[in-house]
Amino acid sequence: MTDENFPSEMYREHILELYKSPENCGELKNATHRHTETNASCGDEITMQLVVNGGKIADVKFCGSGCVMSVVSSSMLSSKIKGMKVEDAKKLSREDIIKMLKINVNAGRIKCVVLPLYAVKNALK
């Protein structure tokens, strides 16, 4: 069998490392904003918790369960928006998420990687 494509472009080392020990994962008791987003097609569930202070995101943590793609995206997005102005975070797009991941995400997995983005957007609504 051919396995030259295994484990596929999506599962590069930096992605797998982060999946095994994600950053910003856990409970944030003093969160001022939180939202849980679910992916109906696979049951993934990601909760984003934010501390907003003076129009800025002072702290972020995520919790929940998901596939490699949704967990890694949650972890990276949390780091990315920490310290960001709320207004800027609200403007983040799907394309920003894909750029952030630095991998080619298959069309079928876009839903997985944008799950935390929608959790952040809905938390900030």
Partner: peptide
């Protein structure tokens, strides 16, 4: 979903 993506690489 990860499994399906990985099977796809084969």
């Amino acid at each position: 979903h990860d499994a399906a993506s990985l099977f796809d690489s084969f």
